[in-house]
Structures are given as structure tokens and as C-alpha cells.
Computed example of a mutant assay.
Amino acid sequence: MLHPLTLYRADPFALLRRFGETLDRMPFGTSAPAFPPLNLWQNEAAVAIVAEVPGVAPEDIEITAKDDVLTITGQRRPPDMPEGAVWHRRERAFGRFTRIVRLPFAVDPSQVEARFANGVLTIALQRPEDQRPRRIEIKAG
């Protein structure tokens, strides 16, 4: 079996190329994905938001709506670890989070409904009746 450094002695630039390939795979200059990830869609009467919040209890989530801004704050708590346990791999983030979403129109906070099931938060925000687009009738003559 060849010693790992044998390759680098034969090609002095192999180590440099390998280092460059490693750097290319690293996520420099990118931020962590927003949490919670969400989808938003709208029609003339409402906006619907579906956010994935696995591992978060409903009582650890707070939703506020004011004008055209929705704020989702909460906390994903770390699991209870047995005494003396050491992380082998830790890919899931824990701690407080805030997600601020600018809505396509101002909403009436009293007309917001939120439901939570299986780690998915669904929020329906009604557009005030007086702000809904109205079709204007065109009169002849």
C-alpha cells in the first residue's frame, strides 16, 4: 500500500488542487437558510403562509401581525441528553428564531387564524374588506 504522501511527492501541486477542491465545497459567503422555511400565496381576499417548524411545540411559537408585517418568533429546544453524553454529529440548530415576512397588503390582526399540526404551522390572514380590489363597472355613453 502506498503512503498518502507518495502521491504528493510525485505531483507537488496535487495537495494544492485538493485544498482548492475542499474550499470550493465550503459555503463561504452564504448565510444559513431562513428558519422556519415557508411558502406564501395570496388571492384578492387573503394571504396564506405555511411554515415548517419541526421539533417546535406550539406553545413555543408567537405570531404577531401589524399592518403588512407578520412576525413568527419561537424557540426550538435542544433534546434532553443523558449525563455525560457528547455530540457525535449536530446538524439541527436549536435556540430562538424570528422570521419577519412583509405581506402583499395590510391585514386586520383580528382576522388572522393559525393552526398547527405535525410540525407545520398554517396561518391565514384576511385582507380587510375595504382594501380588497373592486371591479369597476364601465357605463355606456
Rank of each mutant, 00 (worst) to 15 (best):
P27S: 06
P27G: 03
T30R: 11
A34N: 01
A34E: 09
A34L: 10
F35E: 04
P36Y: 10
L38K: 03
L40I: 10
E44S: 14
I49Y: 06
E52Y: 06
V56H: 01
A57E: 12
P58E: 11
E59P: 06
I61V: 13
E62T: 11
E62H: 13
E62A: 11
I63N: 07
K66E: 11
K66G: 03
D67N: 12
L70S: 04
T71P: 05
I72W: 14
Q75E: 11
Q75C: 09
R76N: 07
R76P: 08
R77M: 13
P79Y: 01
D80E: 10
P82T: 05
E83R: 10
E83N: 06
E83T: 10
E83F: 08
A85S: 12
W87I: 02
H88M: 11
R89I: 02
R89G: 01
R89Q: 08
R90L: 07
F94Q: 06
G95W: 06
R96G: 03
F97T: 01
F97H: 03
R99S: 07
V101E: 08
L103P: 06
F105A: 15
F105K: 10
A106W: 00
A106M: 08
D108Q: 08
E113Y: 00
E113H: 08
A114H: 04
F116L: 09
F116M: 14
A117F: 00
N118Q: 13
G119S: 03
V120Q: 09
I123L: 08
Q126P: 00
R127Q: 13
R127D: 13
R127G: 10
P128Y: 00
E129A: 15
E129F: 00
R134K: 15
R135E: 14
R135T: 14
I136A: 11
I136H: 14
E137T: 12
E137K: 12
